[in-house]
Amino acid sequence: MVALGGLFDQDATFVNRFGHYVRGIEEIVALHVPIHETIYRDSTLQNELIDMAHIADGVAVIHFWSRLAAGAAHPAGPHAVDTLILAVLTRQDEIWRIRALENVTLTNPRTGEAILRD
């Protein structure tokens, strides 16, 4: 979780896939620690960049797919979840960090059932 925190700007915001909003590295890490010590302790993520747009000097917006492969520690057992992530990155002292990130789970709008992208 220390490495996760290092990706973010000190004043970053994070919205998880359930709409939980937090601000700052400490809150972002605190949001993730309990689930990564328990239900996601044997999970993996695979990310795929979709696009990146530089919108100003030292500011970029990225979109990427993220597939969570939950393991046996999850109450629902092994399964996959796809999310679409939008992040705003800023460059300070030649280091790019996440300033804002929002994570959206892919679901069927009629049933709420999670869907996987192709």
Score class of each variant (00 low, 15 high):
residue 3 A to I: 09
residue 3 A to L: 14
residue 3 A to Q: 14
residue 3 A to V: 12
residue 3 A to T: 13
residue 4 L to E: 12
residue 4 L to Y: 13
residue 6 G to T: 08
residue 6 G to P: 00
residue 10 Q to G: 00
residue 10 Q to W: 01
residue 10 Q to V: 13
residue 11 D to G: 01
residue 13 T to R: 06
residue 14 F to I: 03
residue 15 V to Y: 10
residue 15 V to W: 13
residue 17 R to Q: 09
residue 17 R to L: 10
residue 18 F to N: 07
residue 18 F to S: 05
residue 18 F to D: 04
residue 18 F to R: 10
residue 19 G to L: 10
residue 20 H to N: 12
residue 20 H to D: 13
residue 21 Y to E: 08
residue 22 V to M: 08
residue 22 V to S: 08
residue 22 V to N: 08
residue 24 G to H: 15
residue 24 G to E: 14
residue 24 G to Q: 13
residue 24 G to N: 11
residue 27 E to M: 02
residue 28 I to M: 04
residue 28 I to S: 03
residue 31 L to C: 04
residue 33 V to T: 14
residue 34 P to W: 11
residue 34 P to M: 05
residue 34 P to N: 04
residue 35 I to W: 02
residue 36 H to W: 15
residue 36 H to N: 13
residue 37 E to I: 00
residue 40 Y to M: 11
residue 40 Y to H: 09
residue 40 Y to I: 01
residue 41 R to L: 13
residue 43 S to D: 09
residue 43 S to A: 15
residue 45 L to S: 05
residue 45 L to P: 00
residue 46 Q to G: 00
residue 47 N to E: 14
residue 48 E to R: 01
residue 49 L to T: 11
residue 50 I to N: 07
residue 50 I to C: 06
residue 50 I to M: 04
residue 51 D to S: 13
residue 52 M to H: 01
residue 52 M to L: 11
residue 53 A to V: 15
residue 54 H to N: 02
residue 55 I to G: 08
residue 55 I to V: 15
residue 56 A to K: 06
residue 57 D to R: 05
residue 57 D to I: 09
residue 58 G to R: 01
residue 58 G to Q: 05
residue 59 V to S: 10
residue 62 I to L: 10
residue 63 H to P: 00
residue 63 H to A: 01
residue 64 F to L: 02
residue 65 W to Q: 02
residue 65 W to N: 02
residue 65 W to C: 00
residue 66 S to C: 13
residue 67 R to T: 15
residue 68 L to R: 03
residue 70 A to M: 13
residue 70 A to C: 12
residue 71 G to L: 14
residue 71 G to R: 04
residue 73 A to Q: 12
residue 73 A to H: 12
residue 73 A to I: 07
residue 74 H to V: 09
residue 75 P to C: 03
residue 75 P to F: 11
residue 75 P to G: 03
residue 75 P to T: 07
residue 76 A to Y: 00
residue 77 G to A: 04
residue 77 G to S: 03
residue 77 G to E: 06
residue 78 P to Y: 02
residue 80 A to R: 11
residue 80 A to Y: 01
residue 81 V to R: 12
residue 81 V to N: 04
residue 81 V to Y: 12
residue 81 V to L: 10
residue 82 D to K: 05
residue 85 I to A: 06
residue 86 L to N: 07
residue 87 A to Y: 11
residue 88 V to L: 09
residue 90 T to M: 07
residue 90 T to Y: 05
residue 90 T to E: 10
residue 91 R to A: 07
residue 91 R to H: 05
residue 91 R to E: 14
residue 91 R to N: 10
residue 92 Q to K: 13
residue 94 E to V: 01
residue 95 I to R: 05
residue 96 W to I: 13
residue 100 A to D: 06
residue 100 A to Q: 07
residue 102 E to T: 14
residue 102 E to N: 12
residue 103 N to I: 08
residue 104 V to C: 10
residue 104 V to N: 06
residue 104 V to Y: 10
residue 104 V to F: 13
residue 104 V to L: 11
residue 105 T to W: 00
residue 105 T to K: 01
residue 105 T to Y: 00
residue 106 L to K: 00
residue 107 T to M: 14
residue 107 T to A: 12
residue 109 P to R: 07
residue 111 T to K: 02
residue 114 A to E: 15
residue 114 A to M: 15
residue 114 A to G: 09
residue 114 A to N: 08
residue 115 I to V: 15
residue 115 I to M: 12
residue 116 L to Y: 03
residue 116 L to S: 11
residue 117 R to H: 03
residue 118 D to H: 01
